[in-house]
Design a binder for these strands. Structure first.
Lengths: 152, 152
DNA sequence: CTTAAATGTAACAAAGACAGTTACAACAAA
DNA sequence: TTTGTTGTAACTGTCTTTGTTACATTTAAG
């Protein structure tokens, strides 16, 4: 069980929009080519990101743009937007422990605080990384690629 | 997408073994009654925990016991044992970004370090919680239950 | 040595998430 | 009015998870 690729695809999308916004109209087909998935998969994702207020999408004429400053969009915002976990509960607790057993009756309450702390640690880290960071990292890798091409 | 209930069930199992080890033989049927799932689900889990060296299971005669000191078994040990994520990669990266696109070519490398840091934050927290903690929490809740029953 | 009770495991089913795909109505700009 | 695009429904295949039945294997005890 892993966190859906929607999450990494969404970050990929932000990087693409920012990188190509001046040279291309950013359509779902354009993004689909870079990500290498079906355009409908992209459109479904764009709908989620739009609902979360992170991007704007032009109906009809087409084209997507980022709705907020890059350093105001955290990985956590994206993670929430694309609904990686149900009910915002990272851990799936087994549903019906026996109420006849003292352990069964109490295990859920007993564990909750610990599990929340683990989840919070992950989310805290996600909140501290922004789309700006991701795009800068990507540009740095692209630059390295170019400079090594020049050397050759 | 959530972390499999195998994880919380495994912790439940440890709590049961420790709580009832002096009074009952801990069979898969016994555990299945407390967790309220099919005994085969328990046996599959016990096999994983045994493989990881966390418990011992007596073939034939039956009965399970914990193989290490309670404070030497961390939530992370259990998480690894029950294989909650594939390849130890919490994030599912989309498989084939376009190599024709500079962003597509570099996004994976550019993101990896950030994603690893998020995953590490979660795992770090998991390593700091032990079965001993969980069992103590559970016993505290059981004790509260008893004392409020007495009051009544 | 037989029996009873467990475990280990295969096999299959049901349900749900994920991702791929086709199709098309709705929309907006040229 | 045409063209290109988005939004979305519908259906599919695959995979994971969990539930379940069945049974061979193993061990201890009588």
């Amino acid at each position: 069980m892993q966190i859906s690729s929607r999450f990494t695809i969404a970050i990929h999308i932000f990087a693409c929009i920012d990188t190509f916004k001046n040279d291309y109209k950013i359509t779902s087909d354009f993004l689909a080519s870079s990500v290498n998935v079906n355009p409908v998969v992209i459109r479904r994702l764009l709908t989620q990101l739009k609902t979360a207020g992170l991007i704007t999408v032009a109906r009809g004429s087409g084209g997507t743009s980022i709705a907020k400053p890059l350093d105001k969009i955290s990985f956590y915002d994206i993670y929430l937007a694309v609904e990686c976990v149900e009910d915002n509960q990272l851990f799936h607790f087994h549903d019906n422990p026996s109420t006849l057993c003292p352990v069964g009756r109490n295990i859920h309450n007993a564990l909750d605080e610990r599990l929340e702390r683990i989840q919070a640690a992950m989310e805290h880290e996600m909140k501290n990384i922004t789309v700006k960071d991701a795009i800068e990292d990507t540009k740095r890798f692209i630059a390295m690629e170019n400079s090594s091409a020049i050397k050759k």
